[in-house]
């Protein structure tokens, strides 16, 4: 497997008055093509900063992000990014929101409509095409965001606690749907979360971050797929991993 996305020696500082706040220090990571990497870390450990850098939204103070062997200098349409908060355009209905990446790429209107309609159906939002984001529930907005991201046909997908604000049932439901969408797609996923269970359920590989993005643990998850939350909870292998990750998180924060 080849490396798709790699970060080398990333440091990010935010200047404020005479001081600089360090959010990430000397962070390095390589992600292999087609893998599902979950990044686990507590709030404020630089997870979002890291993803923003990987997405090309912000420039690192030091270090380089490379995508498919080339230095990343700005957002790349081949990388999809599902942010923590909803960034659907409130003045566009679901259909037009999903069409947006195609619109920017200059795809013809009828073609846009067909693709968007298909995606809306795939994420389970059929019948809600003409609804504005504020008329949807949190879970439906997430689905719409997911459809919009997929409309851009990214080969690499970054996700920042996408289901963090949802209730437990809905989260489980969407996690399973995400796995279904990903399996066999060949897409590479970097999924950031603070939830150990979620990280173990979804990923092929788990990276635990400590303070300032220090990598505490980086290991493969060999639990067989398809995985389901209920079965996993009583699986001794899962329980062992869970305990180890909890310990790693604790170690990372000290």
């Amino acid at each position: 497997m080849t490396d798709v996305l790699s970060a080398a020696g990333l440091t990010k500082q935010f200047a404020k008055d005479d001081q600089a706040i360090v959010a990430l220090r000397d962070f390095s990571l390589t992600v292999e093509e087609g893998s599902f990497v979950t990044v686990l870390g507590r709030s404020g450990c630089g997870k979002s900063t890291m993803l923003n850098l990987l997405a090309g939204l912000t420039e690192p103070t030091e270090g380089v992000v490379s995508y498919r062997g080339e230095k990343l200098t700005g957002p790349d349409i081949d990388i999809g990014y599902l942010t923590q908060s909803d960034t659907l355009m409130p003045w566009r209905d679901v259909q037009r929101n999903v069409e947006m990446p195609l619109e920017i790429r200059g795809v013809r209107a009828d073609e846009r409509r067909t693709t968007a309609a298909e995606l809306v159906q795939r994420v389970g939002l059929r019948g809600f095409e003409k609804h504005y984001p504020r008329e949807l529930s949190g879970g439906m907005r997430r689905r719409a965001s997911l459809a919009r991201m997929l409309a851009g046909t990214p080969r690499t997908v970054l996700m920042d606690e996408p289901f963090g604000a949802l209730d437990a049932q809905l989260r489980t439901e969407l996690q399973e749907e995400l796995l279904q969408l990903w399996q066999g797609s060949g897409q590479t996923v970097v999924f950031v979360t603070h939830d150990i269970e979620e990280a173990l359920l979804l990923g092929d590989r788990i990276v635990v971050l400590g303070k300032l993005g220090r990598i505490v643990t980086d290991q493969k998850i060999t639990l067989p797929r398809p995985r389901s939350v209920d079965a996993l909870r009583v699986d001794p292998a899962f329980v062992g991993l869970h305990t180890a990750m909890a310990a790693a998180l604790k170690e990372g924060s000290s």
Binding site: A55, L57, G74, P75, D76, I77, I79, G80, Y81, T83, S85, T87, M89, M100, P101, I104, R105, G152
Partner: peptide, 11 residues
């Protein structure tokens, strides 16, 4: 966030 969303779409 909305501006960044459009930048991510290649806008």
């Amino acid at each position: 966030g909305l501006i960044d969303a459009v930048r991510l779409m290649g806008g």
